[in-house]
């Protein structure tokens, strides 16, 4: 049922811009725009997964925080470890509030996912960039009307190779899924 795609190519353009902006300026005067929080279309929840002995898989999913503004997203993102520094076997997931990062959730169970497979070298070079791009696409509602078909995304840090999956709501909505994949 999965819509698999090897997507690395499509994401590479975006990556080049990232560096410059990260280094960008400490502003002298603060514009009013910087003082107002910018609301998001959806409230999102970040989850962390780490397998622990004597816990069920579901209980190993820890809710970290929820946010519904651009600034609160960054406040969270800026203060957590990057995906590439998680221990092997751990995941981050970001889903719309009310959707658990598991297939059994009623919002996910009819859906599929787009998958980006990364090789081992890409953990150091690409993983954080790709993951951030996916997060920004989701919170910015970059899939336009198809954004409603997006449930969330998961990054798996694994020794065999990391994965980033974008989970969609309904495999029957073929057109939306393809647009999201673009």
């Amino acid at each position: 049922m999965n819509n698999k795609a090897n997507h690395s190519v499509a994401f590479q353009n975006d990556k080049k811009q990232a560096k410059g902006e990260e280094e960008s300026k400490e502003h002298g005067d603060v514009s009013p725009e910087m003082l107002i929080k910018h609301p998001l279309q959806n409230t999102w929840t970040l989850w962390f997964f780490k397998i622990e002995n004597n816990r069920t898989w579901e209980d190993c999913q820890m809710e970290i925080a929820s946010f519904n503004t651009v600034e609160d997203f960054w406040a969270l993102y800026n203060h957590i470890e990057s995906a590439s520094h998680l221990k092997l076997g751990c995941d981050y997931s970001m889903f719309k509030q009310g959707i658990k990062p598991m297939w059994e959730d009623e919002h996910n169970c009819r859906g599929g996912r787009w998958l980006i497979n990364l090789n081992k070298q890409q953990r150091a070079t690409e993983l954080d960039n790709f993951w951030l791009e996916v997060l920004l696409l989701m919170i910015g509602e970059a899939f336009a009307e198809h954004s409603d078909e997006v449930c969330g995304a998961v990054v798996n840090v694994r020794s065999k190779g990391d994965k980033i999956g974008v989970w969609t709501a309904d495999v029957k909505k073929g057109e939306s899924i393809l647009k999201i994949g673009d």
């Binding site: 990260e22 960008s24 600034e71 609160d72 960054w74 406040a75 800026n78």
Partner: peptide, 12 residues
């Protein structure tokens, strides 16, 4: 751009 907003400097 909003990444360095003053409002994003405090952890949640």
């Amino acid at each position: 751009q909003m990444r360095n907003s003053p409002l994003a400097k405090t952890p949640p």
